[in-house]
Amino acid sequence: MSAVHVSTNINGDDVEFVCRPDESLLDVLRDRLGMTGSKEGCGTGDCGACSVELDGRLVCSCLVMGAEVGGHKIETIEGMAQGDKLHPLQQKFLEHAALQCGICTPGFLVAARNLLERNNDPTETEVRYWLAGNLCRCTGYDKIVRAVLDTAKDMRKSAAKSSAKKPAAKKKAAPKKTAKKGARHAA
């Protein structure tokens, strides 16, 4: 098996690694780069514990080949806090007790951040569908959804404050894959 040399960018840092083509991005992050914050719960894209952003797009790192990330930008849980300052979602997860065992937490945080960057005013249904690819077996999701909604509320408050001073930041495309799916059976 011929190894591949890859130059990429992770959490803003240029990174180089060598991997076998059968290694996933998750394998590379965990085993080659020591970034074990992304977790493997299934290895088949069904649990979301390995969620990362690839060029701003939420993906399962277990379903990305390590070999294919050359020249791309990757964001992982390790890049979420800025120094000793937690991301608002991280803070809200703590305050709402939105984690029990914590194994799914990095994936939920990465996925929720990706949602709120696109839509800082999601409905509960939108949050639930956006996060449907992240399994949590401990919490029953209640406190996770509350933490995300509460973070969004704070983000809107601070956006309103800052928009009083400068023009409002343009909202990215809102996630649309929500209400229509919820209405599927009732169709």
């Binding site: 894209g45 939420l58 379903l63 956006w130 449907a132 690819g133 894959k177 229509k180």
Partner: peptide
Amino acid sequence: LEEHGKVGKMWPGVVEATNLIGSTQIQGR
């Protein structure tokens, strides 16, 4: 495909069907 908008306007069935495949994470790929 979804974010393109125009395809979904012309063929909503196709875009909705494609968007049903897997999670948000799967949709990214």
